[in-house]
């Protein structure tokens, strides 16, 4: 176990050390102490290492992650796991705005609540939120799965493309072109797998699925004057 103390180690040195780990590294376990809300902790990783941040992080923790597992024992600031490619990011507390934004792969698990714009423009990432999410979540989401055990705020899935949204609780309102859809066996299977991997105690049958009505992004000659 390598321990890096952010009270004595500059952020750039911390990230350089983590980014230098090769795919076959023997140094697989890292612990970061005294994060105190610092920005851009453990970003751009590209090795199958496990990083535990003991405390709360600021903007953009674990951004662009590939392969690594990053765990935050506190809460995460805006843009956690932004543009993640693969790997796993786990937030024990809450996440601020635009968690998992533009993510292309991997799994983001938020044990608490996520605030507004969770999964905005997601492009293949899977996000599981044990609590609730704020307004404008999954705005323009293109692919991947967003699973919410609690409630969703206003305008869920506005201008949605092909991402799947699963919500167990109440949805305050759906955004433009987002509709409730039938839960078929393949969706139950996808959801069961995500709930298991995210350590979530919930049954897939308790969720509703939402997706794109596909009326907004196909050209309609009747709407030509609106474009």
């Amino acid at each position: 176990m390598q321990t890096i103390d952010m009270a004595t180690t500059p952020l750039r040195d911390l990230n350089a050390a983590l980014q230098a780990q090769a795919k076959q590294t023997n140094q697989t376990a890292w612990e970061i102490v005294n994060p105190k809300g610092a920005h851009a902790i453990a970003v751009g990783l590209d090795a199958p290492i496990e990083v535990t941040v003991k405390g709360s992080t600021g903007y953009y923790c674990a951004g662009m992650n590939k392969q690594a597992t990053v765990k935050v024992t506190g809460s995460a600031g805006p843009g956690v796991a932004e543009n993640m490619m693969s790997g796993t990011v786990i937030i024990e507390g809450d996440a601020s705005q635009y968690a998992g934004a533009t993510g292309r792969g991997g799994l983001l698990v938020i044990k608490g609540n996520a605030s507004s714009r969770c999964g905005i423009s997601m492009k293949g990432i899977d996000i599981v939120v044990h609590g609730s999410i704020g307004h404008m979540s999954a705005f323009m989401a293109q692919s991947g799965n967003l699973v919410v055990l609690g409630d969703a705020g206003d305008a869920l899935g506005d201008s949605l493309y092909e991402a799947r949204l699963f919500v167990r609780g109440a949805v305050k309102s759906l955004g433009a072109d987002c509709v409730e859809k039938e839960m078929r066996p393949e969706h139950i299977a996808i959801l069961q797998d995500l709930l298991t991997r995210a350590g979530a105690d919930a049954k897939p049958e308790e969720f509703k699925r939402y997706g794109s009505a596909r009326t907004l992004y196909n050209f309609h000659v009747d709407n030509a004057s609106a474009y």
Binding site: K36, G37, A38, S56, G58, Y59, S75, G77, G93, D94, S96, S115
Partner: peptide, 19 residues
């Protein structure tokens, strides 16, 4: 504006922190 501003307050570890 950010958690950083609160990180050194006494008792922050056990405070109720929310957005």
């Amino acid at each position: 504006s950010e958690y950083r501003a609160l990180a050194n307050l006494p008792g922050i570890e056990t405070a109720r922190v929310w957005e």
